[in-house]
Computed example of a mutant assay.
Amino acid sequence: MDEEHIRPEGVDDLTVEALGNISEALEAIEIARGHLYSFHRITGTADFTLEKGVDQLREAGHTELADRFERELVGRNVLYGRWTFQVMEEYDDGYYATFKRLEKDARDALVQGKRHLYESEMKEERRTHGRTGHEHRPDE
């Protein structure tokens, strides 16, 4: 039996469902964090590509316009006082770290730290017992 995904004795349905919703919200936050890292990468790539275009404008004799791009946009903060790496660090160290800590604290306090109890129980309800491709766990 997979004790890691078995509800501890005395834990009610609403608690398991609540922790499932909190876990689902954390999954959404993980996706948002991934998009933030994509934002960081894409913005950095755009800045370097912009710089290349500015250099080409300068080579083509458009120095005034190239100077304006360079002054106003190349290397500019994306938010006041911040490049994207600073946005990521603030998000990671603040909201994201707090969310991760509270979600773990709730699991530790209520279900002995067990993860995905809601999903595990849903799997048991939905799978066809004894059928290939519907095994309880990989070691069956």
Score class of each variant (00 low, 15 high):
residue 108 D to G: 09
residue 62 H to W: 02
residue 88 M to Q: 15
residue 119 E to G: 04
residue 57 L to W: 01
residue 76 R to L: 03
residue 129 H to L: 05
residue 123 K to T: 13
residue 39 F to E: 04
residue 59 E to K: 07
residue 107 R to G: 09
residue 33 R to S: 14
residue 48 F to P: 01
residue 43 T to P: 07
residue 111 V to K: 03
residue 100 K to Q: 02
residue 111 V to W: 00
residue 57 L to Q: 12
residue 65 L to K: 12
residue 76 R to W: 03
residue 22 I to M: 10
residue 107 R to S: 00
residue 121 E to L: 01
residue 26 L to S: 03
residue 85 F to W: 01
residue 18 A to W: 10
residue 108 D to H: 12
residue 99 F to Y: 14
residue 23 S to C: 01
residue 117 L to R: 07
residue 54 V to L: 01
residue 9 E to R: 12
residue 110 L to A: 03
residue 129 H to K: 15
residue 123 K to P: 00
residue 34 G to V: 05
residue 45 T to V: 10
residue 49 T to A: 06
residue 72 E to M: 08
residue 127 R to Y: 04
residue 2 D to K: 10
residue 52 K to E: 13
residue 15 T to G: 03
residue 136 H to K: 13
residue 21 N to K: 13
residue 82 R to C: 14
residue 53 G to V: 08
residue 90 E to C: 10
residue 95 Y to S: 02
residue 84 T to G: 12
residue 91 Y to Q: 14
residue 130 G to Y: 08
residue 83 W to A: 10
residue 83 W to N: 10
residue 119 E to L: 13
residue 34 G to Y: 14
residue 87 V to R: 01
residue 103 E to L: 02
residue 121 E to P: 12
residue 94 G to F: 11
residue 18 A to V: 03
residue 36 L to F: 12
residue 69 F to P: 02
residue 116 H to Q: 05
residue 69 F to H: 11
residue 12 D to G: 01
residue 104 K to N: 09
residue 82 R to D: 08
residue 27 E to K: 03
residue 103 E to S: 14
residue 51 E to Y: 05
residue 72 E to C: 11
residue 121 E to A: 13
residue 108 D to E: 07
residue 88 M to L: 13
residue 81 G to R: 03
residue 23 S to K: 06
residue 41 R to S: 14
residue 92 D to L: 04
residue 17 E to C: 12
residue 44 G to C: 00
residue 22 I to D: 04
residue 38 S to H: 12
residue 84 T to C: 01
residue 63 T to N: 07
residue 125 E to I: 07
residue 109 A to D: 10
residue 67 D to V: 02
residue 8 P to Q: 08
residue 94 G to S: 13
residue 16 V to D: 08
residue 126 R to I: 05
residue 112 Q to E: 01
residue 114 K to S: 00
residue 1 M to C: 11
residue 48 F to G: 01
residue 55 D to E: 01
residue 109 A to G: 01
residue 56 Q to P: 02
residue 134 H to S: 14
residue 64 E to Y: 08
residue 118 Y to K: 11
residue 60 A to E: 15
residue 63 T to K: 11
residue 78 V to H: 00
residue 70 E to K: 11
residue 65 L to R: 09
residue 65 L to E: 09
residue 29 I to M: 07
